[in-house]
């Protein structure tokens, strides 16, 4: 008995688990979740589908210049490096934000639902740290998915079309290295945008125990944003909407690259991220465990 008493660590100061260990543990948990893996695999099949589809369709749909996202397909023909960017553009509209929302839903609402959030709080992991770890985990999932899409897109494009370089929308040709840098930039930029959506989802996630509520709320939010974008009377709102900046992803295909839209949208995403995490923190720090 006395031996046990002596072996006890002192009880006089706060002790915390190493942050790196928490982050690694979070990633281990996320990447062992079957649906995360399935979602990432499905998303990375999208560039393959687009690439093969475009090649099969050939020049059939290369009509005289519409302005919708369809005209990106035109430049894709014979231009494999466009495939990663085009895939990310299409996925950014809905599926990547949904992946972020799903991850955010599991991060707080899901853990709460399984009773495992309480286990972390008792360990204890402070609530601010908990949120930080969760935000990191969600961001990493989004990054992995985005990078996987870009990588699969790049490989598919190179196999289908070759490595002649990236023809920009501006009409000039970029070197292989330049093209890789542009794709890398797209991955980072898209990750940050989706991370901002996920932060809002994380805030919703902090309020509920039901992951499906988070998904539904995110879908509803996406729908509302889409509606707000098309109502002309509400166009004063557009600078505030995160989604309006998403068209600037195609700017990476222009040369010289116009940074304005990309930077503006990144700053906007940073604001959304801050708002989302702040609401999540306020809720988490007042929530009963």
């Amino acid at each position: 008995m006395t031996a046990a008493v002596v072996a006890r660590p002192a009880l006089d100061r706060p002790v915390r688990a190493p942050l790196g260990r928490l982050l690694v543990s979070e990633l281990r948990w996320i990447l062992r979740r079957p649906r995360t893996i399935i979602a990432i695999v499905l998303l990375s099949l999208v560039p393959v589908l687009i690439g093969v589809g475009t090649v099969i369709a050939g020049n059939a749909n290369a009509g005289p210049g519409g302005n919708g996202p369809g005209s990106l397909f035109t430049i894709l023909i014979g231009n494999g490096f466009v495939l990663p960017v085009l895939s990310l553009t299409l996925l950014l509209a809905m599926l990547l934000p949904l992946l972020g929302a799903m991850s955010a839903a599991d991060a707080l609402a899901g853990e709460s639902n399984h009773g495992t959030l309480r286990g972390l709080l008792i360990a204890p992991v402070s609530r601010a740290r908990l949120l930080g770890v969760k935000a990191f985990g969600v961001g990493t999932v989004v990054f992995i998915a985005t990078a996987a899409v870009a990588l699969v897109g790049l490989v598919t494009g190179v196999i289908l079309v070759g490595t002649d370089g990236l023809i920009t929308l501006t009409g000039n040709t970029l070197s292989f290295g330049d093209a890789l840098a542009r794709i890398g930039l797209s991955v980072v930029w898209v990750t940050f945008q989706v991370w901002a959506v996920a932060a809002i989802a994380l805030a919703v996630s902090a309020f509920t125990e039901h992951p499906l509520v988070v998904m539904a709320a995110t879908l509803a939010g996406a729908l509302v944003f889409a509606i707000l974008t098309v109502i002309p009377q509400l166009d004063w709102m557009q600078p505030y909407l995160l989604t309006t900046g998403w068209t600037s992803l195609t700017d990476v295909l222009r040369d010289p690259m116009p940074w304005d839209g990309l930077i503006d949208s990144t700053l906007k995403a940073a604001c959304y991220l801050l708002i989302g995490l702040s609401v999540a923190y306020a809720r988490l720090s007042t929530k009963d465990g």
Partner: peptide, 10 residues
């Protein structure tokens, strides 16, 4: 403090 920090962030 949590609420204040959250409100400030928002």
């Amino acid at each position: 403090a949590g609420l204040v920090a959250g409100a400030a962030g928002v």
